[in-house]
Amino acid sequence: MTRTPKIICTYLALIAVSAWALLPLAWAVTSSLKPLEDVYRFPPTFTVDSPQWQNYSDAMTKLPVARFLANSLLISFVGVIGAVFTSSMAGFALARLSFRGRRLCFALVIASMLVPSQVLVVPRFLLFDLLGWIDTYKPLIVPAWLGGGAFNIFLFRQFFKTIPQQLDDAARLDGASPWRIYSQVIMPIARPATITVLLLSFVFHWQEFLDPLLYLSDLEAFPISLGLRMYQSMAGTWANLLMATSIVALLPVAIIFVVCERQVMRGLGVVGKPW
């Protein structure tokens, strides 16, 4: 029976931590329902007196938000497929195939994380201009198809390492090629890793801001991350509409997360294993 106070304490601590985690979200929700003047009221209120639901319809009509969301979905969808596909392939090679220079390749994966992305802005712009890719989605999508990010490769490698080697060996005895082992033996088991990478790279594409800014100049093609910026103008920020749109923009991420939460927990869990 001495356990009861302990459990209560644990719950209290957990509630405190979750409240802390949800604080910005709570602020966003309340602000999105306030008139603009009330967002800046002092002393601040934690509640909304009369929710301004029309903020949401205003936010959706003041800018072509639906269009931005559709664009974002398209970019993220194509990018995510590439990221999952190519990073799992690289991860597979690093975890499952033995070849000379494997350690070097792995070291390169880790080392490429060290490069500050701001250094790459100018050279990449030169490259994409040379390719004539300015004002297309290619600078946003194609990099995802070329390795899909060092962290994702690492995550796949770690996950593949947890799968028993015997499976490969058995398949190999049956005459299966590495490609078949990858596509028919390993990948079907690696769902948690796949879904984790899917979620992480979706979020990455969804929030990417600087690249779309540099590479897109047709408003009809803007993703939502650029659209959010349009509530800030020289004259003032529509904080309430910005928050309403932000919440609408967060929904897809939240939905995906809720659906595959269990897999993500398993997928992320493996990255801390000894390498």
Binding site: V121, V122, F125, L126, D129, L130, I134, D135, L213, L214, S217, D218, L219, F222, L226, G227, R229, M230, Q232, M234
Partner: peptide, 24 residues
């Protein structure tokens, strides 16, 4: 063809500079 840069003018300056850089 209309090309539009969203947000604050700093972003626009950055973009124009990039385009000047590649002579485009």
């Amino acid at each position: 063809v209309q090309e539009y840069v969203a947000g604050l003018s700093g972003h626009y300056r950055t973009k124009l500079r990039q385009e000047a850089l590649v002579d485009n």
